[in-house]
Design a protein around this nucleic acid. Structure first.
Lengths: 135, 135
DNA sequence: AGTGAAGGTCTCAGTTATAGACCTTGTGCG
DNA sequence: CGCACAAGGTCTATAACTGAGACCTTCACT
């Protein structure tokens, strides 16, 4: 069975449950990975444990607010763990949990696709944006 | 080289360009896949060409506005093509372009991970949410 | 006493999504 | 004839979410 058909038939399954967000894995699990920062954070943690401030500096344009929020979500979903060290001021370290590490493979595949397709997408955009000044 | 390290070293590369969204493939290409509906649309199209109305019904809780917007983005990025048939009222068909079809494999891998991890994530959430009423 | 770092939280504005009304063209129905 | 409806969208008003930046607490250093 091709990827195409495999996905299509899964979609049919999900549709039968009306894509109920509480039961559909795509919507339930992947939605978080969408929020623009989460993926980046997971990748940043691929290199090993990182502290809050390090992550903040690694991803220059994330705000602390969003960073905190994404980290909480990841922790809640069991993808990362949070360790507080009782130094003063206390320092906090985040690291991938097993579940989070298991995501690295699939994520890597997707990222390879993104890198391979990057130029095609850019070209397509130029072509598309070149059309409108017509009529 | 492990997935872990591969990703980590890519992240280092991107960081060197300060994760500039115009050049970083993840941010540039994958961000669209994030917007909650796009992935679903791509999967829906995996089964073959679909018309606007069909897609709208396939994904019950998407609004026409968002559907239109996502479809435009996908078309702009060259992942799908749009065909208008001069019937009346005109009907419009969307189908995956080659580039879009090439995404199906990577996406499938991620979705398999999501399905496999779904229960673990749900469990983790319960555990996490069970903690707060403390102190 | 003042300053800086640690890891956050809070507020306010600005951005983005959503629901739902509305538009246009043409066909079927009574 | 006159009305409703389907197609594929667009427009508007409201709701939700984001991001910038101020603020908090505890120490060490000067």
């Amino acid at each position: 069975m091709s990827d195409e058909n495999k996905l299509a038939s899964k979609f049919d399954d999900w549709q039968r449950m009306r894509l109920d967000p509480t039961r559909c894995p795509v919507r339930n699990v992947l939605d978080h990975l969408s929020d623009k920062w989460t993926t980046l954070i997971v990748i940043a943690l691929a290199g090993g444990p990182r502290r809050f401030g390090e992550l903040n500096r690694s991803i220059p344009d994330i705000s602390k607010r969003m960073l905190t929020q994404c980290l909480r979500n990841l922790e809640r979903d069991g993808l990362i763990t949070r360790h507080v060290f009782p130094t003063s001021p206390p320092s906090v370290e985040y690291r991938l949990a097993d579940l989070g590490r298991s995501l690295l493979g699939p994520l890597g595949v997707l990222i390879e696709w993104a890198e391979a397709s990057h130029q095609s997408v850019l070209d397509a955009r130029l072509r598309f944006d070149g059309i409108p000044p017509s009529t």
